[in-house]
Design a protein around this nucleic acid. Structure first.
Length: 272
DNA sequence: GTCCCGTCTG
DNA sequence: CAGACGGGAC
């Protein structure tokens, strides 16, 4: 049997015994909800998204409702997921889909990728999981599974090589479930210890969070989620992390459209 | 302390 | 291309 067929046999076996089809975003084909889940899952582990996804889509069940909502509320429902710019992108995304795409979420990668916060991986995932179309895309579990199985003897693997393998092994008759089996298998391979992705040329080490500007940013947003409106002095007293970043962070959050300044006080932006 | 993990900006 | 961007589990 070819290596490709062996791999698919392995995926099938694994999927039969150990799939994660209980995940709430696998119980819908609604492209809007798939979009929400995929943006939440960017740089964020499943365990953290699990508790946030359902409350979020219950509050914002359609793209129109999300588009009409205040960014401040979207940010507050995002709290705990991190990378708060994603909430801003998602809100802008909803407004653009309603305003320019007739509230329809495209089934074409080329039209999805122009949306804010939607890159190659997210666009591919939406097309596959919502529409069951056999497109090729790579995210971390996919990369890990393919490197582990097909590149065990290599130490510098480029995504373009992974894409070539994917084109050979993808099940074009049932791409949605095939990708589920692939990501579940990939997720099961050692992450913390000896992560096969360390052999990817795209692998990078993260910078320190403690004491970083990023920590102060996160802390400011978190405080504003709790208190609605806060003076700079009170922020200075309450933030976690290094105070020296506060002024700079406030300026950047205002210019990015995440917060607004009125007088000497700050609040989350309405997004309008 | 070390690690995970996509997209955007410069 | 490199660097910025959260929050938590281990």
């Amino acid at each position: 049997m070819s290596k490709e067929r062996q791999f698919n046999k392995l995926l099938k076996q694994f999927y039969t015994s150990s799939n994660r089809n209980y995940l709430p975003w696998r119980k819908t084909h609604d492209p809007y909800k798939i979009l929400i889940s995929e943006v939440m899952l960017q740089q964020t582990q499943v365990s953290r998204v699990e508790s946030k996804f359902e409350p979020f889509v219950e509050r914002f069940p359609t793209v129109e409702i999300l588009a009409k909502a205040d960014l401040a509320e979207v940010l507050s429902r995002w709290s705990g997921l991190g990378y708060n710019r994603r909430a801003k992108y998602l809100h802008q995304c909803a407004r653009k889909i309603v305003g320019k795409h007739n509230s329809q979420i495209s089934k074409h990668i080329s039209e999805l990728i122009v949306l804010p916060g939607v890159g190659e991986a997210t666009a591919g995932a939406i097309v596959v999981y919502a529409y069951n179309v056999a497109e090729i895309f790579i995210e971390t579990n996919i990369r890990r599974a393919i490197i582990d199985y097909f590149f065990s003897d290599k130490n510098a693997v480029h995504d373009k090589h992974i894409k070539l393998i994917l084109k050979d092994v993808i099940d074009r008759n049932n791409p949605r479930e095939w990708y589920w089996s692939l990501v579940d298998y990939g997720a099961s391979l050692g992450k913390v210890k000896n992560n096969p992705n360390k052999k990817s040329v795209h692998y990078t080490k993260q910078t320190l969070f403690l004491g970083s500007k990023r920590q102060v940013r996160g802390s400011v947003i978190k405080l504003l989620v709790q208190d609605i409106i806060i003076s700079e002095d009170n922020l200075k007293r309450s933030i976690e992390g290094d105070q020296k970043y506060l002024k700079e962070v406030l300026k950047e959050l205002v210019s990015e459209g995440l917060i607004d300044k009125s007088g000497q006080k700050y609040r989350l932006s309405t997004g309008r």
